[in-house]
Write a protein that binds this DNA or RNA. Structure first.
Lengths: 258, 258
DNA sequence: AAGTGGTCTAGACCACTTG
DNA sequence: AAGTGGTCTAGACCACTTT
C-alpha cells in the first residue's frame, strides 16, 4: 500500500494515488527488492497488496515504463529494465557514419563500436569533475580511457571518471572483460541504473594525445562532449569526456522524440 | 467513429481501438479541422461521436498529448499544441552559455536569442537539400540567413532552406516581422506544425563568411549542425544548417528524457 | 490450462475554469 | 452553477507465453 497518502509536508500539493503508487514502486526498485532478471509480482497481486484498483496500479506502471525504468512483456510479466540491449546502446551511443550525399540514407546495419581500453587508473577528482559528480575535490575516482572504433576506424576517444565510492572494488579486469556495455556493468555489478544523461558539446582543436589516438593532425576540429550520466533522483554516477572525429562521422540527435 | 476497424491490408495486424481513434484524431488535426486557438470537442462528446468509451478516447488523447500534438487544460479543454511557447523554443534552441566552472550551474534565466535576418532570397535547391526535403534538385526554395545573439554576442549563424511549394507567398517582411518563433509562423501562417527534428553535428573550421558573422578568426573550430525539421508522418519541412560559436557556449542535449 | 499483461467498458466523483 | 479535464474503481474479455 502507498505508505503515505497524506504528504508529510503540508505545503506540498497532495499527489494523486497513482503517483504515490509509482513512488513506492520506484523506491522498491531502487532498493533492489526486485531482481534484475526476475519479474515483479503480477499486477493483480500488486494492486491488492497496495490496496488500489488495477487501473490505478497500471497507471503508475505505465509511467515507469515510459521512463524506461520498467518493461512489460505480455504473457510473461513486468521487469526492471535491463540495460544491456541495442536500444540503450544506441540511445547513448550517438555517433554514426555520415551518409554518402550521393546515395542518401542507405538501409544500413546499426553498428556496434569496438571498444578498447587504453588506460585504467585511480586518481583524485579534479574540481570540475568533483562538482559534476557531487563529490569533494580530491576524492578518489577511477579514470578510464577508451577508444571506440566503427568499421576498424577509431572515431571516439573517451575519458570516464567514476567516483570510487560508488564503484568499490571495480577492477580493470572486470571492466575490460565485461560481457556487455559499461552501463549494463554498472547495473549488474553495482546496482546502478543509468536513466538519463546530460551532454554539453563544443568544437575544439584536437590536442596532441587525442590526435594521436584518433589518427588525425593536431589542431583538427573535433567535437568534445561532456556527459554526465544520472540515476534515480538525478544522482550523478559517471562523468565522461568524449572526443569525436567528425571528419567522416556525425554526432546525431533527435529533438522532441515521439 | 473510427472509420475502419478492420484494416484494409490483411497483412497488417489489427490495431487496437484506441489506436484507430488516435489515427482518426490525428487525421482531423492534420486536415486542420480543429482551429489553433480553439478547443476540441469535449471528451464525452468525442467518445460518443466515435462510439467508444471515454476511457478509450482518453487513451488515444493521452498518446497525442505525450507526443506534443495536443495539450490538455483542466477545466478548459483540449487544444492543438501551439508552437509559440517557451517550452518549444528551448526544445529546439539548444545553445547555452557555458557555465562558469568556478560557480557551477547558477540559477540562470533562460535567455531568448535575438534573431537578425541577414538575407532572404529565392534559389534553386542543391542536391543535398533536395534529397533531405524530398523535392527535386532545382526546385525553388527560400534561402534565409540569420544570426542569433545571446546577451548581445552573436553565437549562431543559421541558414534555412524552405521548399517554396510548402511556403507559397512567404515574404521577407512576413518572416522578419513575425510575432514569435519561426515554427510558430509555419504553424499559424502555413498550417505546418513542426513535431520533431533530426540533427547531425560535426566540427569544422570556420569559413570566411561565417567567421565574419560570428566575429572569430577564420579556421576556428565551430560546430555545424544540419537539422531537418519534420511534421506529421515525418514529412520534411525545413532544412537548416546552424554554425555555432562554442568558444563560450555549449550545444546541449539530454538523452532519454523523462 | 493457467498465468501474465493489454484492451475496453460504464460510471462515480474530484479539481479547475468560467460565467 | 455549469462545463471541462483528472482520478479511481470493478469487472469483462482478449492476446500472448509457459507448463
Amino acid at each position: 500500500m502507498p505508505t503515505a497518502k497524506i504528504p508529510s509536508d503540508p505545503v506540498q500539493k497532495a499527489l494523486p494515488l497513482y503517483r504515490l503508487v509509482k513512488r513506492d514502486l520506484q523506491q522498491m526498485i531502487e532498493a533492489g527488492h526486485y531482481g534484475i532478471g526476475k519479474a515483479l509480482p503480477n499486477e493483480a497481486t500488486l494492486s491488492t497488496a497496495m490496496k488500489v484498483s488495477i487501473g490505478t496500479l497500471r497507471h503508475a506502471v505505465d509511467e515507469l515504463v515510459h521512463e524506461h525504468v520498467l518493461v512489460r512483456r505480455q504473457g510473461k510479466g513486468t521487469f526492471v529494465a535491463p540495460h544491456n540491449n541495442a536500444r540503450f546502446m544506441f540511445q547513448f551511443f550517438q555517433v554514426e557514419p555520415r551518409p554518402d550525399p550521393e546515395e542518401g540514407h542507405p538501409i544500413r546495419e546499426l553498428e556496434y563500436p569496438d571498444i578498447a581500453c587504453i588506460s585504467f587508473t585511480r586518481d583524485k577528482a579534479q574540481p570540475t569533475e568533483a562538482r559534476a559528480l557531487r563529490i569533494r575535490p580530491g576524492d578518489q575516482v577511477f579514470r578510464i580511457e577508451n577508444k571506440l572504433s566503427l568499421n576498424k576506424q577509431v572515431v571516439v576517444h573517451d575519458q570516464l571518471t567514476l567516483p570510487l565510492a560508488k564503484f568499490r572494488n571495480l577492477s580493470e579486469h572486470q571492466f575490460v572483460n565485461r560481457s556487455s556495455t559499461v552501463y549494463a556493468l554498472y547495473q549488474s555489478d553495482f546496482g546502478i541504473t543509468v536513466l538519463r544523461a546530460q551532454e554539453r558539446a563544443r568544437a575544439v582543436a584536437a590536442g596532441r594525445s587525442v590526435a594521436r589516438v584518433l589518427g588525425m593532425p593536431v589542431g583538427c576540429p573535433v567535437i568534445e562532449v561532456h556527459r554526465l550520466a544520472l540515476t534515480f533522483a538525478d544522482k550523478p554516477v559517471e562523468y565522461r569526456i568524449s572526443t569525436i572525429d567528425t571528419r567522416a562521422h556525425d554526432y546525431v540527435s533527435v529533438l522532441s522524440k515521439k
